[in-house]
C-alpha cells in the first residue's frame, strides 16, 4: 500500500502511454494513482454515498422545519387588526430568533459547534446523523423563507374566497393556498437542494467521510493534490449540472400543466 512511484508505473504501462509526451504521461500516472491503484475509486463512491445521504436527509429535515416555521410566521402575519394569541406570538418570537441565529452564523461554525460541543459523535453513523441534523437545521431557515414567500405569492382573494365559503384558516391553507403555493415553491426548493449538496462538503470538518473528506484521504496517500481536487470539483459540477437539467425539465412540465 506504499506510495506508487512514477518510474515503477511507467515501466509497466502500455506502450501507447509510453509514447506520449512527458507531461501527459505524468497526468495519466496521477489519474491512475488517484482512481485505479488499490481501487481508490471506491473512496469516491463511498464518499458520494455519504454526500447523497446527508443531502437528502438534510433536505427532508429542512423542509419539515421550514414548513412549520413558514406557517407560524404566515399565521402571525394574518393577524393584522387584532393581537395574535399569546402562544402564536411566543412561537413567532422563537422562529425569529432561530432564523436570526442560523442565518447569521456560518454553516462551518454551526458544524463545529454541533460536532465538537453539542453532539461529539463517536461512530460513523452518529457522525452522519450529526451532519444531517446540522445541515437540516441550517437548511430549514432558508426553506422557511422560500415557503413563506410561496404562501405570500398566492393572491389574498384566494384565502378570502375560501374563508367566505366557511373553510377554517387551516382548511383554507390546506385546500386552497398550499396547493397553489407549491408550484411557486418547487423551483426555489430545487435550488436549495443544489446549494445543500454543495454545502455538504463542509461536513468533512466533523470527520464525516463524504466525497470531499475521501478526496483528502486519497491525497494523504498520493501526496499530490491537483488531480484529486480537480476531479472532486468535476464530480460536484457534473452532479449539479444533472440536477439543474432535471429541475429545468420538471419546471417545464409544471408550467405546461399551468392552469
Amino acid at each position: 500500500m506504499g506510495v506508487l512511484s512514477f518510474k515503477g508505473w511507467i515501466a509497466d504501462a502500455p506502450s501507447w502511454i509510453r509514447s506520449l509526451p512527458e507531461g501527459l504521461q505524468e497526468l495519466f500516472f496521477q489519474l491512475y494513482q488517484t482512481f485505479i491503484y488499490n481501487d481508490r475509486w471506491q473512496f469516491f463512491a463511498s464518499g458520494l454515498k455519504i454526500t447523497f445521504i446527508v443531502t437528502i436527509g438534510a433536505l427532508f429535515i429542512g423542509i419539515i422545519i421550514g414548513l412549520v416555521l413558514a406557517i407560524i410566521r404566515t399565521m402571525k402575519e394574518s393577524y393584522t387588526a387584532k393581537k395574535a394569541p399569546l402562544v402564536l406570538r411566543i412561537l413567532n418570537s422563537i422562529t425569529e430568533l432561530y432564523l436570526t441565529v442560523i442565518r447569521g452564523t456560518p454553516m462551518m461554525v454551526q458544524l463545529l459547534i454541533m460536532g465538537f460541543v453539542i453532539f461529539i459523535p463517536k461512530s460513523e453513523e452518529s457522525r452522519v446523523l450529526c451532519g444531517i441534523i446540522t445541515l437540516g437545521i441550517n437548511s430549514g431557515a432558508y426553506v422557511a423563507e422560500i415557503v413563506r414567500s410561496g404562501l405570500m405569492s398566492v393572491d389574498k382573494g384566494q384565502a378570502e374566497a375560501g374563508r367566505s365559503l366557511g373553510f377554517s384558516y387551516a382548511k383554507t391553507m390546506w385546500y386552497i393556498v398550499i396547493p397553489q403555493a407549491i408550484k411557486n415553491i418547487l423551483p426555489a426548493l430545487g435550488n436549495e437542494m443544489i446549494t445543500l449538496l454543495k454545502d455538504t462538503s463542509l461536513v468533512s470538518v466533523i470527520a464525516l467521510r463524504d466525497v470531499t473528506k475521501q478526496t483528502q484521504n486519497i491525497i494523504a496517500k498520493t501526496y499530490t493534490a491537483m488531480v484529486p481536487y480537480i476531479s472532486l470539483a468535476v464530480i460536484y459540477l457534473v452532479i449539479v449540472i444533472a440536477m439543474t437539467k432535471l429541475l429545468g425539465a420538471f419546471e417545464k412540465r409544471l408550467r405546461k400543466s399551468d392552469h
Binding site: 393572491d155 384566494q158 374566497a161 375560501g162 367566505s164 397553489q180 392552469h259
Partner: peptide, 8 residues
C-alpha cells in the same frame, strides 16, 4: 367578489 376569486 369583484375579482371572482375562483380557485385556479
Amino acid at each position: 367578489f369583484q375579482q371572482f376569486n375562483l380557485f385556479p
